[in-house]
Design a protein around this nucleic acid. Structure first.
Length: 272
DNA sequence: AGTACGCCCTGGCCGC
DNA sequence: TGCGGCCAGGGCGTAC
């Protein structure tokens, strides 16, 4: 389940291989992947011959900037991007749905077991408006005041953190881990958070995302980086999928509830 | 505006 | 060993 840290790990690994390289062939073999626009023939034609100017990330989206347009890749739940120095080095099982072959060798495969991911083109100049994503939690502008402004509503705090239009990049794992670190119960109305809690939550969100990147992502389902290496951050999860175990902070048994149709893990002892 | 629910999809796991 | 059923949940659409 690639969230902000996993996509950032992928971005950092791919950028040196992709930036400045020209796409000589694009193969898209799964209709669902290109469901948003034109279908895969259109998309393949549009990217072939283009040079990848930059590899960026916005929230959970990876962006390959190709001059005036950008190829947006969203990995869904099980999407993987795998790099190989030559076409023959790529995996070729039935879950590989797209391949980009680069000038001078080098190839990128998109593999996605559950096909929740997608790719589509957007004008590079309109990325920010068209993606309709909220603030990046790791930029300096994500201040306590910015978080406070988002929390002026009655929604429960966890579904708010998962809402990509408000904050971009937080998914189920990092939401649960951040709320645990901040000592805030996921069911709390956002508008009920006190000043000290908003401060703690802002720090917790940033810390947990940075730790996720530092440990190269959480490999719960099948996440791995473009070289096939899994991340190590799951070893450091404190509540996510730890129901029934003792809280590392207070010893109370970790609970699991359903919140907004999502499995939600927290400590009833120290998350108020 | 909020909340709930179903859908997409596959593999892993459970119980029988 | 096999098979049905459930679960995982990101994002979207729809309904209330």
């Amino acid at each position: 389940m690639p969230e902000l840290p996993e996509v950032e790990v992928i971005r950092r690994a791919l950028a040196p291989h992709l930036e400045g390289r020209r796409i000589v062939r694009a193969e898209l073999t799964e209709r669902r992947l290109t469901r948003r626009d034109g279908g895969f023939a259109t998309l393949a034609r549009a990217v072939t011959g283009r040079t990848i100017r930059a590899v960026r990330r916005r929230g959970k989206h990876l962006l390959l900037v190709l001059g005036e347009r950008a190829l947006v890749i969203r990995l869904g739940m099980t999407g993987q991007l795998l790099w190989a120095d030559c076409e023959a080095g790529l995996p070729c099982d039935r879950h590989v749905h797209a391949r980009l072959l680069l000038e001078g060798g080098g190839a990128l495969a998109y593999r996605d077991i559950r096909k929740f991911g997608e790719m589509f083109l957007l004008p590079a100049a309109e990325l920010d408006t068209r993606l309709r994503l909220g603030i990046e939690p790791l930029v300096p502008g994500f201040t306590v005041d910015a978080l406070r402004a988002l929390c002026r509503r009655s929604t429960k705090i966890k579904p708010l953190l998962l809402d990509q239009r408000r904050v971009a990049g937080i998914g189920n794992i990092y939401a649960d881990e951040a709320l645990f670190r901040a000592g805030i119960r996921p069911t709390r109305p956002a508008s009920s958070l006190r000043a000290d809690e908003l401060t703690a939550l802002r720090e917790a969100i940033r810390d947990v995302l940075k730790a996720g990147i530092r440990h190269r992502g959480s490999s719960i389902a099948n996440f791995c980086d473009p070289h096939g290496r899994p991340g190590r951050f799951a070893e450091r999860h404190q509540v996510y999928r730890k129901q029934g175990q003792r809280c590392p902070r207070c010893g109370v048994t970790i609970a699991r509830i359903l919140l907004g149709q999502r499995g939600t893990h927290f400590c009833p002892g120290c998350q108020a």
